[in-house]
Amino acid sequence: MASSSNLDSLLSKSANDLAKEQEVQRVMKAFKLNPYDILDLPAFATEAEVKKQYRKKSLLIHPDKFKHENGLEAFDFLKKAEAQLSDSSKRTEIDAIMTHCRTAVLKSVLGSGYSTNIADTDPRITSLRPPLDAQIRAKAKEVFVEDELAKRRKSKLAFANEGAEKAKAEAEVAARKRKIEEQAKWEERRDERISSWRDFSSKKAKKSKKNLHVLG
């Protein structure tokens, strides 16, 4: 009996470790720009469903309970996804994209039969292959990537403009500095210029006086 009990315990532990291993791999392969993908939830899941799923997944692969080379990173992805869907402003942005994708998918598969009032329980929806949620996720992946690229282009442009403004400001500072240095050098040579002018004037006066004697 003891041997059988140990075997059952070993098999249970192995199955549990396998489930944890598979969950870490699933998170690492999930589309990182879509928190629904990371948490393995359908689009528009409720706040309660998000928290329940996060708790379930995070407990399964928590770094303190399961050691894996990607465990900590996978856990952080789960935590970030839950935080995004728990933030009302970010959730609004994400769900706006998902709504747009749902509309696009339904219009493409139903054509003229599409209606804004169609429910997910409609037979035309439940019979879709691939399932509606899978098609929405696929479409959302395209939109999220386009949105991310647009953000990066905007950020790059802003950085370039910031760099140009910084270079302009630095050039203006350098120009003012050169002007101040030139003015300082001009002032430093003031006595030298005055002395040179006096010498020149004195020599000119002597020469003029000498010429007058010659003429006389």
Rank of each mutant, 00 (worst) to 15 (best):
M1T: 05
S155C: 08
F31M: 02
A167T: 00
E82V: 07
S196R: 14
I136D: 00
L7E: 13
K179W: 14
E142K: 11
K90R: 08
D199T: 10
A171G: 08
E21S: 07
L10H: 10
K52P: 00
Y114K: 05
E192I: 03
M98L: 15
A30R: 01
K179H: 14
S9E: 11
D147E: 14
D122P: 10
F200C: 15
D87V: 02
S196D: 15
S108L: 07
S86I: 00
K57W: 05
A169Y: 04
A171N: 10
P130R: 06
W186H: 11
I94R: 01
F200Y: 15
M1P: 06
L106C: 04
R55T: 09
R129W: 08
I94M: 07
E142N: 10
T92R: 12
A45S: 14
L11M: 08
A119D: 15
D40I: 00
L132Y: 01
K141N: 13
A104L: 03
D199S: 12
W197T: 10
S88A: 15
K166W: 05
S9T: 06
K29E: 08
E21H: 06
I38L: 04
N117E: 12
L78E: 00
S108D: 14
A48K: 12
A140D: 01
S3T: 10
A140E: 01
S88L: 12
T121V: 05
I136K: 04
A160Y: 12
K56S: 13
E21D: 10
F200Q: 15
F66N: 11
R178K: 15
N34Y: 09
K141E: 15
K67C: 10
E21G: 07
K156V: 07
Q22H: 06
I194V: 10
Y36N: 04
D37F: 03
P123T: 02
D95R: 02
D87E: 03
K51F: 10
A45D: 04
A174W: 14
A19I: 03
L110M: 13
S155A: 15
K79Q: 11
N117W: 09
L110R: 04
A205L: 14
S196N: 15
E165Q: 14
D120Q: 08
A19H: 11
K65Q: 10
G71V: 05
N34M: 06
T103N: 13
A160Q: 14
M98F: 12
A43R: 07
D199A: 09
L39I: 02
P131E: 05
A164F: 05
E49S: 05
I94C: 01
A2S: 12
E93A: 12
E73H: 11
D122G: 08
K80C: 08
R190I: 00
F144Q: 01
A158N: 14
V145L: 14
S86F: 03
E192Q: 07
E148R: 07
N34W: 03
L72R: 13
L60M: 15
V27H: 01
S14T: 09
P42Q: 07
P42T: 01
K13F: 08
E162M: 09
I97A: 09
R178Y: 13
A119E: 15
N34Q: 05
A150L: 06
Q135V: 01
L78N: 00
A140T: 03
N6V: 00
I97L: 11
A160K: 13
R102V: 04
Q53A: 02
N6M: 08
E47I: 08
L11H: 05
P123C: 07
A169I: 06
